[in-house]
C-alpha cells in the first residue's frame, strides 16, 4: 500500500448572507493515496466544483482542513495542477500553445529544461506540431489537450480535473479519456477527477466517491476493480462494468437532491 497524498477532513464550506447561511459542503472526509485515480460524482449542485477549488487552494474552507503531502492547504500548493472544464477561458488566448504550456514553468525551471518539458508534454498529448498555433485556432478537443499538456509539464503530484471533457463531443471525449488514462500511467500522477458522468467515472477510476448534497457529505466510496488495461469498447461492454455502473448509479439516485430554492440560491449567490 502506497502512502497517503491527500487527506480531506471534516471539510465544510458555507456562504453567509445577511439573512441566511447556505451550506455548500459539510463534513467531507476523503483520503487519496499516491498514484491513485479517484473520481468524484454527485448530482448537480452537490458542491463538487467547490470541493475541487478548496483542494486547489483557490477558495478557503469554512470548516475542517485539506492536507496535501503533509502540508495544510491554505493557498494553491506547489505540486498540484488543475484542468478546468472551460478550456476556452482557462487557456490564454493571447499566448501561443507553447507559451501557454510554458507560463507556469517560467519561475521555477531553467530555460533548457523548460523547453524539454514543454516539448515532452506537447508530444505526450499529440500536439507537438501545433506549438506555434494560438489556442483559438484549434478545435475544442485539441484545446483541452493543450490544457492537459500544460498541467503535466508542470509535473504535479496531484492533478485536479473539473469536468474536463463535458464540453466536447462524444467521439472526442472517448479519445481524451483514453489519453488521460495513458498519461496517468506514464507520469505516475495522482488524479482527482470531478465529473457528473457516471460511465466516465467508472471507466477511468480506481475508486468512485459519491458526494451527497449540501449537508450530507460523502455518500459512498466504491472501489472499481476493473483490469488496469481498459478500452472503450471492451471495458464498457463488459458485464462487470455494467454492475459497477449500476452500483454507483444506485448510490447517486439515493442521494437527497437539493430543493429548487436552494439551487436558485446557488445560481445567484
Amino acid at each position: 500500500m502506497t502512502a497517503e497524498l491527500l487527506r480531506i477532513e471534516k471539510l465544510g464550506k458555507s456562504y453567509r448572507s445577511r439573512e441566511r447561511q447556505v451550506d455548500a459542503l459539510t463534513g467531507i472526509d476523503l483520503a487519496v493515496r499516491e498514484g491513485e485515480f479517484v473520481s468524484v460524482v454527485g448530482p448537480s449542485g452537490c458542491g463538487k466544483t467547490t470541493l475541487l477549488k478548496i483542494v486547489a487552494g483557490l477558495v478557503p474552507a469554512t470548516a475542517g482542513e485539506v492536507v496535501l503531502g503533509g502540508r495544510r492547504v491554505t493557498e494553491p500548493p506547489a505540486d498540484l495542477a488543475v484542468v478546468f472544464q472551460e478550456y476556452g477561458r482557462s487557456l490564454f488566448a493571447w499566448k501561443t500553445v507553447r507559451q501557454n504550456v510554458e507560463l507556469p514553468l517560467r519561475h521555477h525551471v531553467g530555460r533548457a529544461e523548460r523547453r524539454a518539458l514543454v516539448a515532452d508534454a506537447l508530444d505526450a498529448v499529440g500536439l507537438g506540431a501545433a506549438a506555434g498555433a494560438y489556442p483559438w485556432q484549434l478545435s475544442g478537443g485539441m484545446q483541452q489537450r493543450v490544457a492537459i499538456a500544460r498541467a503535466i509539464a508542470y509535473r504535479p503530484k496531484l492533478l485536479l480535473m473539473d469536468e474536463p471533457f463535458s464540453a466536447v463531443d462524444a467521439q472526442t471525449r472517448g479519445d481524451l479519456e483514453d489519453l488521460l488514462a495513458q498519461l496517468w500511467h506514464r507520469y505516475a500522477m495522482t488524479v482527482l477527477f470531478v465529473t457528473h458522468d457516471i460511465d466516465e467515472a467508472v471507466y477511468l477510476s480506481q475508486r468512485v466517491v459519491v458526494l451527497g448534497t449540501g449537508t450530507t457529505g460523502v455518500q459512498a466510496q466504491i472501489p472499481i476493480d476493473l483490469p488496469a488495461e481498459r478500452d472503450q469498447l471492451g471495458t464498457r461492454s463488459s458485464a462487470h462494468f455494467g454492475e459497477l455502473r449500476a452500483q454507483v448509479y444506485a448510490r447517486v439516485r439515493r442521494t437527497p437532491r437539493p430543493s429548487t430554492p436552494e439551487l436558485l440560491e446557488r445560481v445567484a449567490p
Partner: peptide, 26 residues
C-alpha cells in the same frame, strides 16, 4: 478579466504581479 483565467493562473502559483502581466493586461 475571466475568473477561470485568474483561477488557472493562481493554481499555477502566479503571484499578483505576474497575474497582472499575463492575465489582466492582455
Amino acid at each position: 478579466v475571466d475568473q477561470v483565467a485568474v483561477d488557472t493562473a493562481r493554481s499555477f502559483r502566479l503571484g499578483r504581479l505576474a497575474r497582472i502581466v499575463h492575465v489582466t493586461w492582455p
